[in-house]
Amino acid sequence: MFIVMIRTSILYTIVVISMRLMGKRQIGELEPFELVIAIMISDLASLPMQNLSTPLIYGIISIFTLLAFQTFITIFELKSITFRKIISGTPNILIQNGKIDIKELRNQRLTFNDLMEELRIKGFYNISDIAYAVLETNGELSIMPKSEMNSVTKKDLNIQTQNEKLPIALILDGKINHDNLQIINKNVNWLNNKLKANNIYDTNTVFIAMLDSQNKFFFQLKE
């Protein structure tokens, strides 16, 4: 038992040192190749702890080999833009000037609900308020609001306002969400009238239709 404790302590110390040497950025968001290395390091460290017949030095050498590999990749990324694109990819614009890039959304294997969840986490509830939403190479979503959204707030002017509501999707990829219609006490006829008012006569042509946080009707057609 005492030997297991010693081996575990040594491996734990080495793994912590390895992660620190990889840089502080690894603690937050990992690039794909960094995530692979982190997973492999954890697996290599667990093998000598579980199997006492495995020499401890094998695990240590493997861990530092991966650490060296990660260091070389990082250096090559700094020196070569092409290599960086191959390993880490490039950022992708998902929203531009308040309009969703449907093709790019599908290429990144993201659903509309995934996108809206990320926007809400960032404090944005209306797609029309966003100038650009960029999916970074580490999976983080960066958002730049439209310039008018950075102006003086109503609170600064002491203007009384009502609390905004959560946006509700009514049509997603041509399919009507009847449950959400019931939540807002509306029916399909009301929805069809809203669409007709915008010269839309076929729900199959609609990518997304929703009531935003200010109870305004927002829609975007399929490309």
Rank of each mutant, 00 (worst) to 15 (best):
M22N: 05
S46F: 11
K103F: 11
K122G: 01
I100A: 00
I176T: 07
A133L: 06
F124A: 00
T153H: 06
M49R: 04
I3F: 11
E118T: 04
I102Q: 15
K186I: 06
Q108R: 15
Q160N: 13
P145G: 00
F72G: 06
D179L: 14
V152N: 02
A197K: 12
E223W: 05
K85N: 13
F33G: 01
I200L: 08
S18V: 10
Q162G: 01
M1Y: 10
G59F: 02
M19L: 15
Y132E: 01
D202Q: 15
K24E: 13
P91L: 08
F112M: 12
T90A: 08
K154A: 05
E31W: 00
A131Y: 13
I130R: 02
N204M: 13
V134R: 08
Q70N: 14
I121K: 13
V15I: 15
P32H: 02
F124G: 01
S18C: 12
F112D: 09
M40W: 02
F69K: 04
D114C: 03
V36D: 03
N92L: 12
I143A: 02
T203W: 07
L56V: 11
I63T: 08
I100W: 02
L21F: 01
D114M: 09
R120V: 02
R84K: 15
K24L: 14
S62W: 07
K99H: 07
Y58H: 15
G98M: 06
D129H: 04
K154H: 11
L94C: 01
L35R: 09
Y58K: 13
V134D: 07
T13N: 12
N177G: 01
Y125F: 09
F207A: 00
G23R: 04
M5A: 11
L44N: 06
